[in-house]
């Protein structure tokens, strides 16, 4: 049945491309307003970024083509970039998977609560992401005063003798960044998972129990996850994006550049070169590297997710 459908579609697409175009030419008209804006302000910037990454460009003079020099400098001479890559990877390796699993785990756990409690929990868990700049409150919590929240508490319990400078001490900064980032990791992917669990078909579970599904884990792996694969893929895209685009948080909490570059991320490096040094070509090269990493990783993870439940 399905195979026949597919082949029919293939044949029709091969035979009558011209006819399809003639019958549907008005579609382009309807899409034009959105696509024009979308391509100008979303796609074109990425293409331009890739092109500019092969040039020296300081905004005042026209770009000079320097081929791969930017990339060579990036990898060979820019120690701070390598540090930024290291920091970004540490953050992404922890925040990405933890955030992704948290999106799934909490959606799964709150699925069994009563509707009202579930609605409240969804608001509570989603609020940190929803509320854009709320993370600045962590600055107050982690402040270096002896009367600040966390320092005050630690002093009170006698765990430390003098306040720790959380926001300027290189030993702590990256971990604070990770905590805040995890706090903000339940985003659109989480909502997608919640909705996915909510719309699960009960009869599938009952069929599963007859089949000998014995506990929650088996239920999750053999029934729930396979039918939620589309949501899992969407949530993976969201997690990868947010894990690699850490930047605002570090600027807000530690400043840019941070002490000893201890919390310097790739995004910070981009804005350093773009907004402070005006080396646009170089900044674009950094952006291109970041972007390529994200797209490549996404491809890999989508492939892995196709194996869930098999």
């Amino acid at each position: 049945m399905k195979a026949a459908e597919v082949s029919a579609k293939q044949i029709s697409s091969k035979v009558s491309l011209k006819k399809r175009f003639r019958q549907n030419w008005d579609c382009y008209l309807y899409m034009a307003p959105y696509m024009l804006i979308f391509f100008t302000f979303t796609v074109l910037p990425v293409v331009m970024s890739i092109v500019l990454s092969f040039t020296y460009y300081n905004i005042l003079e026209p770009p000079q083509f320097i081929f791969l020099d930017n990339y060579r400098n990036l990898l060979a001479t820019d120690d701070v970039f390598l540090l930024a890559v290291k920091n970004t990877l540490i953050i992404a390796v922890i925040v990405g998977p933890v955030g992704y699993l948290a999106c799934l785990l909490f959606a799964w756990l709150i699925n069994e609560l009563s509707p009202i409690v579930r609605a409240v929990m969804v608001v509570i868990l989603y609020a940190p992401t929803l509320s854009g700049g709320a993370y600045t409150i962590w600055q107050v919590l982690f402040s270096g005063d002896s009367t600040a929240w966390i320092n005050g508490m630690l002093l009170n319990f006698g765990l430390i003798d003098e306040p720790i400078q959380f926001l300027t001490n290189a030993d702590y900064m990256i971990w604070i960044c990770i905590i805040v980032q995890i706090w903000m990791s339940l985003g659109a992917g989480f909502l997608s998972n919640v909705a996915g669990f909510r719309s699960m078909d009960r009869s599938q579970y009952e069929a599963g129990y007859v089949d000998g599904i014995r506990n929650r884990w088996q239920e999750l792996w053999f029934i729930t996850l396979p039918s939620m694969r589309p949501q899992l893929m969407f949530s993976a895209v969201m997690s990868i994006t947010s894990a690699f685009s850490v930047g605002d948080v570090t600027v807000q909490l530690f400043g840019n550049p941070s002490t000893d570059y201890a919390a310097h991320t790739i995004l910070n490096h981009i804005s350093d070169y773009a907004n402070v040094r005006f080396e646009m070509g170089y900044a674009c090269a950094i952006a291109t590297v970041l972007f390529a990493t994200m797209v490549g990783l996404n491809e890999l993870i989508q492939r892995l997710l196709r194996k869930v439940g098999q």
Partner: peptide, 30 residues
């Protein structure tokens, strides 16, 4: 069902990963 719809949608899905900082510089120029 018009020619090019699949390609356009693929581009949209990939662009879910474009972060504003990455596109900020060209955006300013545009």
């Amino acid at each position: 069902d018009f020619p090019g719809r699949n390609v356009l949608f693929k581009i949209v899905v990939v662009s879910l990963m474009f972060t504003p900082t990455v596109t900020a510089i060209p955006n300013y120029i545009i």
